[in-house]
Amino acid sequence: MFQAVLDAYGLNAENFKIEPFGSGLINHTWKVSNEKVAYILQEVNTEVFRQPQNIAQNIETIKKYLYQTAPKYLFVAPITAANGDDFSVIDDHFYRIFPFVENSCSIDFVHQPEQAYHAAKQFGKFTRMLCAFNVQKLKPTIEDFHNLPLRVEQFKKALEQASDERIGAAKFAIEEIIRHYDIEEQYVHMVDSGALNLRVIHHDTKISNVLLQAETGVGLCVIDLDTVMPGYFISDVGDMMRTYLSEANEEEKDFNKIAIREDVFAAIHKGYMEEMDQVLSFTEKQFFIYSGKFMIYMQAVRFIADFLNGDIYYKTNYPEHNLVRGLNQIDLLNKYIAKQPEFEETIKKINENRAGNPKPILN
């Protein structure tokens, strides 16, 4: 397989060391390297991304725009294959090769607020640089990816069809999801009222999707652009809240370890708004804190719906895995909501400081 793929790029597999790379759960990724050069080879998971050509087209369209408007920005685009495409198809498998960015690194968990700051700044910068781009040129790569009303509707259908045993096991989780229906209601109101502007959004802002300078930890750029498509800023900010604020991730069974780090929240706000303060509307800024509720709640809904459906979507390692994941996210949600007064005070202080020390935004 490797030789056939590398042949499409004029490379000989015998001249390279090929080894698994990264911690991604969707696509298969390898580092292809020798003493002179290194690449990242990736096979796109077409069970998740059913129209991978849309990914390639989106990235190519954004690349051309950024090369014209922000030529100094580090945009890690796929290398062109011998046939002129940015991908190759071998035995119905979809592959692409990226240049390996030297002196860069990525991390899997936020250990310090500075890491959250640099990541948030890079995701904000990416959307800011594309604020004048015609978002309608992009195609959805996963339909209804962050469609909260759809996820709630799927939960309701799962609840109607679930076994009594699963409903009993998930009783508390079900009650909590129903108790927080107002989160979905607010989302519908925001969209229907036009409070949110459609923008170029990454949609998968986990910390590992930012390249950092290996020595300094300063952000370089965002990577893994498969989910870049039209969306709302609350998706990117909300996903950072969901995955950065607590040291315990969604797999943690001991909910006592789930804790909101207020300094990390401050770092997310500071980094993102340094780039997006002049881009977001006044109304959008009022939903910055809501974004965390939006994404955490949606993930809880998805886990519990899958548990009620008999674990047909997410891979599980033990019988109540999705239930535990859902309860984990519900606990995170409730702790997040409890911190809202502190979040509001944090934003107030950051804004006051920014007003007194304005900084120019540069590409």
Results as ranks from 00 to 15, higher is better:
M1K: 15
Q3C: 15
A4M: 13
L6K: 05
Y9D: 04
Y9C: 10
N12T: 11
N12F: 10
E14H: 09
N15C: 13
P20A: 00
T29P: 07
W30C: 04
A38N: 12
I40D: 01
Q42W: 06
E47A: 15
V48G: 09
F49S: 05
F49V: 11
N54S: 13
A56R: 14
T61L: 12
Q68H: 15
K72D: 09
Y73M: 10
F75S: 02
I79V: 12
V89A: 06
V89M: 07
D91W: 09
H93M: 09
Y95A: 00
Y95T: 07
R96H: 07
R96E: 00
I97S: 03
P99Y: 08
F100M: 02
S104E: 02
S104G: 02
S104Y: 02
S106Q: 10
V110Y: 02
V110A: 08
Q112M: 14
A116V: 08
K121G: 07
F126Y: 08
F126N: 02
M129I: 08
L130F: 02
L130H: 05
C131L: 13
A132K: 14
Q136N: 13
K139N: 11
P140W: 03
P140K: 04
N147D: 15
L150T: 01
L150I: 07
R151F: 08
E153V: 09
Q154L: 12
F155D: 09
K157W: 05
A158P: 09
S163Q: 05
S163C: 09
I177D: 00
I178E: 15
I178D: 12
D182W: 13
D182G: 12
E184C: 15
Y187P: 01
M190F: 14
S193M: 10
L196D: 01
V200Y: 01
I201H: 03
H202G: 03
D204Q: 08
S208L: 09
S208G: 13
N209I: 07
L211D: 10
L211I: 14
Q213M: 13
G219R: 01
L220H: 06
L225N: 02
D226I: 05
T227N: 01
D239H: 04
M241P: 03
T243R: 06
E251Q: 11
F255E: 04
N256W: 04
I260H: 00
E262A: 10
E262W: 03
A267E: 01
I268C: 06
K270T: 10
Y272R: 04
E274K: 12
E275N: 08
M276Y: 00
S281K: 10
T283F: 09
F288P: 00
Y290Q: 05
Y290P: 00
M295L: 10
Y297R: 03
V301S: 04
F303D: 01
D306S: 07
F307A: 02
G310Y: 05
I312A: 02
T316A: 00
T316W: 00
N317E: 02
N317W: 00
N317Q: 09
P319D: 03
E320K: 04
H321P: 01
H321G: 01
R325M: 08
I330V: 15
N334V: 14
I337H: 14
A338G: 13
A338Y: 15
Q340R: 14
T346H: 04
T346I: 07
K348Y: 04
K348R: 07
K349Y: 11
N353L: 13
R354I: 11
R354E: 09
A355S: 15
A355F: 11
P360G: 11
P360Y: 06
I361S: 12
I361Q: 10
